[in-house]
Design a protein around this nucleic acid. Sequence first.
DNA 1: TGGGGTAACTTGCTTTTCGCAAGTGAGTGG
DNA 2: CCACTCACTTGCGAAAAGCAAGTTACCCCA
Lengths: 166, 166
Amino acid sequence: MSKSERPATQCPVGRTLERVGDGWTLLILRDAAQGLTRFDQFEKSLGVAPNILTKRLAGLVENGLLEKHAYSERPPRYEYLLTDRGRDFAPVLTAMLAFGNRHFALEGVAGQLVDRETGVPAEPIMVDRVSGKPITSEHFAYAPGPAAGPEVLARVAFMAERQAKG
Amino acid sequence: MSKSERPATQCPVGRTLERVGDGWTLLILRDAAQGLTRFDQFEKSLGVAPNILTKRLAGLVENGLLEKHAYSERPPRYEYLLTDRGRDFAPVLTAMLAFGNRHFALEGVAGQLVDRETGVPAEPIMVDRVSGKPITSEHFAYAPGPAAGPEVLARVAFMAERQAKG
DNA sequence: TGGGGTAACTTGCTTTTCGCAAGTGAGTGG
DNA sequence: CCACTCACTTGCGAAAAGCAAGTTACCCCA
């Protein structure tokens, strides 16, 4: 996507995508969630070019999802550890995992989340933490928040108009 | 990322990213979920170049998330409608929305999901549909499925080894 | 009948980014 | 002291993205 200064969206999805909405970045986060920490581990696992990896790791550190930590001073060696923010990204990956299994597991499920105790595969869905209601368009709607600017308001207005008509 | 034939991952997250793991593609899906259907609506909303938009829409159609539907034959006019598969992608966007609001809403929340009846903002989390347990690494682990090949098995083995050590 | 507008693109060109290969620095192991 | 590991950087050609303009096929209005 363009690097040039586009006018900084307010949309929370857009905000997320601006920072981590890159293929390699998401794969790095997947691998980090599975316990990879070192440059060459990511390099081998992903088959990514080192210059690209350097950039993506720097971006993740800059945005606070990874922390660069020296585990050896001489020689200088680093590992990249997930921060709390990075760990908090897990639901996005979980949602992608579930979606991939539902739609792109042609030859059957290759990897899945299972209950540690029972071994039963999970069926991850999104619910509201408080009410427990599943997040569907039936129960929930996109609405402006306290900081909503014209961009979001216009979008919500469009959706409302659309709902009224059709 | 590279278009050249890399050896087709089995990882469900990887599978998903291969097909829709592109910034513009994800933004198109966001907009489609909010009711946009037409070429020029996406073009204006996203500020994306038309040649790029054409490619992304074609990719989404090819992967079965959108359907190209003629709403006028003369002149030929098309709209792009979410398929069931496309609608099923919503949890990923919801997870990104929640993540964005938790971490990148500097000046306050601009857009959020609210309960249609009560107007109370949702706090979307992932749970197992059957047991209702929240999807955390405490309760759930990544495990090979019936179709797991060496790639997934090696990854799981690595994670287990890592867990054992500390 | 003709000028303007809309919608959904395509084409051509420039700029940016990516991917690959090779190189570098600071060590460790034999 | 030679090979090897790790975490990179540099240089270069290829691929992709962005921009502007053009195209097709209508409809509307006077």
